[in-house]
Amino acid sequence: MKEPRKYTHDQDETGLTKPEFDKTELNEPELDERFAGQAKELFDDSVERLDAATLSRLNKGRHQALVELQKTGLAGQWALWMPATGIAAAALVAVVILQGPGIEGPSLPAESVTDFEILLGEDSLEMLEELEFYSWIDPQDFETDNNVG
């Protein structure tokens, strides 16, 4: 077990406490430790003597850093939601494409399929020649169907 160092504390005329060592009893590591302790004491003392204006500037600097943190925090939160938002948007677009009525152009009534079959049939060219007639007769059929119903 390490033996405690033998030294006493004494105050000089200025009131500064100085450790009094018996140097002959100290080995090199202990002398290093003592030196480091004295240096730290001086450094701490210089820190304590910082003036109010400097402390105020430090305070401002710290608050500036916290403002930056808030900015980063907001950006970070937004970044956190970005993947989820992207996935949701992609899913929505997919649903609209697959099921939405307005994407494939104007909707066609079921009868149109039959009309296409007729148009693509052998008589299609003749029908195209008489397109004006068919366009006149179609509303007529519609009205007739409604009257029947």
């Binding site: 005329e13 200025t14 009131g15 210089s46 003597r49 003036d51």
Partner: peptide, 20 residues
């Protein structure tokens, strides 16, 4: 560059300052 002293004796401040 010396900061304002804060409630310490000038002698001690000077001694500490010189040592630092």
């Amino acid at each position: 560059q010396a900061p304002d002293p804060a409630g310490r004796t000038p002698e001690r401040d000077l001694q500490s300052h010189e040592a630092m």
